[in-house]
């Protein structure tokens, strides 16, 4: 069902694959993307409840994904993950209404709790 849809965007395949397998076990429907552009294209076709995006990506980066989603799909919750944990970026993302911000490696259990809270929003 649409309300349980999760999109994962990370230019490293292993991140999307691990998150997908782990979240599918929880009963979520998950789609993974390796870049921001194709993810935004997909958002035009389908509604996702949660978008989990990497920050640093070539082309459309995580902040751009966040801003676009917040502008066009305000109901969708964005969770940011990044290897380059950086306070300035975190503050910038929080200002843009990111739901959560995790430095990598991300504990899957914590990510799941965050998603659960996101799902419970509205």
């Amino acid at each position: 069902m649409a309300s349980h849809n999760i999109m994962i965007i990370d230019d490293e395949k292993i991140v999307g694959d691990m998150a997908r397998l782990s979240l599918e076990q929880e009963g979520y429907e998950v789609e993974t993307f390796l870049d921001g552009r194709s993810a935004l294209d997909r958002l035009e076709e389908k509604t996702f409840k949660v978008v989990i995006t990497d920050l640093k990506m070539k082309g459309v980066d995580g902040l751009e994904v966040l801003r676009t989603v917040k502008k066009l799909y305000p109901e969708t919750v964005v969770i940011m993950i990044t290897a380059f944990a950086n306070l300035d970026v975190a503050i910038e993302a929080l200002r843009d209404d990111v739901h959560d911000f995790f430095p990598k490696p991300v504990k899957l259990k914590e990510l799941k709790i965050s998603i659960q809270r996101a799902m419970e929003k509205n």
Binding site: D10, E12, I14, V15, M18, A19, S22, I81, A83, K104, P105, V106, K107, L108, K109, L111
Partner: peptide
């Protein structure tokens, strides 16, 4: 711990 299956990590880690 991090490579044990409970964490999302990437090759950079």
């Amino acid at each position: 711990e991090k490579l044990g299956g409970d964490y999302l990590f990437d090759v950079n880690y």
